[in-house]
Simulated assay, not measured.
Amino acid sequence: MISKDSKIFIAGHKGMVGSAVWNTFEENGYSNLIGTSSKELDLRNQSSVENFFSANKPAVVIDAAARVGGIMANKTYPYQFLMDNMSIQNNLIASSLAYGCEKFIFLGSSCIYPKLAPQPLKESYLLTSALEPSNEAYALAKISGVKACEYIRTQFGKDYISLMPTNLYGERDNFDLETSHVLPAMITKFHEAKIKGNLPVILWGTGSPKREFLHVQDLAKAVLFSLENTLPDNLYNVGVGEDISILDLANLIQKIVGHQGEIIWDTDKPDGTPRKLLDVSKMKDLGWTAKIQLEEGIQSTYQWYLENVEDLKRVKIG
């Protein structure tokens, strides 16, 4: 039985998702949280992970650890995206099963669904047709994690579940232009162009694809909901149930940042999947819904960026 003093291991607790989960759990009275930095524990190393579990024996594991990135990073390093993510999740899942972990919450991504699946994306569409090639490696790794948790659930009767969030953003996001996702990349581009005299901003693609964006604090509350309730199925979408075109997103971020220059669309660059809207009815029917509106979320994210931009630059230089 999970209680407020149950030992909970949050893998990836220093990242955007993990830190939001950690803070949300603390705010709700969970007092026995544990986490390790990547320097202290390389989650890709099987023996190191086994030793950690043997010593700590957590009752709950939240897998918020992953190698992540945008289209450019995924296209450039597919082998690392496949192997690193499979190693991380396989070690965590296997050790959780071996050392009696009561509950495991696996965090994935909406990219696990087929590129041209009907919209909105239902959980049942998994593995029904081909993936989006630009992030196939990451998607394949996450699909294997979903299936591992599903098989443990059916074979061993363990409360192992998978949450598939849509595109995430928020405080502690990755704002590096070479590896970030579209929303934080736009914040960086518009801000840098603004302070350099409102220079033109070049964005990839046509602006026509539509995307759904979930604030990381909403995801953290979905994880808390999943911790405190026994969910009947193994796989759940986590999103807002609404999307926005990349063009409209660019205009919204430009307005929030205060950039006055031109937006140029580089149509030689890929758009990616035409649309990725999640069907979130399963979580909604259980009693969870997202609360943070997109404009409000981007404003708070930009404020965090302004407060931390110099530190972010120093980290990149270092």
Rank of each mutant, 00 (worst) to 15 (best):
L107H: 00
F106N: 11
V315N: 10
N234T: 15
G12W: 06
P232F: 10
L41G: 08
G207A: 10
K221Q: 15
E123G: 02
K75Q: 13
V240H: 01
L140T: 02
M83Q: 10
I93M: 10
A55L: 11
Y30E: 03
L41D: 07
T76P: 00
D248P: 09
I105R: 03
V280F: 11
Q80H: 13
I88M: 05
K7V: 15
D159P: 01
E123A: 08
N167R: 10
N229F: 09
I161Q: 06
G287D: 13
F104C: 11
I88N: 01
L183D: 12
R153Q: 12
M164R: 11
F52C: 12
K189F: 05
S281I: 13
N167P: 02
S300R: 04
F106R: 01
N91T: 02
K194H: 11
N174K: 10
I256R: 05
L235N: 06
E192T: 05
I71C: 10
Q260N: 12
P274M: 07
V223I: 15
L168M: 15
G69K: 07
S129D: 15
V21N: 00
V223H: 02
N167S: 13
E150G: 02
I298P: 00
Y138V: 02
L41C: 10
L312D: 00
K196I: 08
L203G: 04
D173N: 09
E40D: 09
I202K: 14
T206L: 07
D279L: 00
V315F: 14
I10D: 14
E178I: 08
S3A: 14
F25G: 04
Y160A: 05
G241I: 04
T206F: 11
N85I: 08
T166K: 00
V49L: 05
V182I: 14
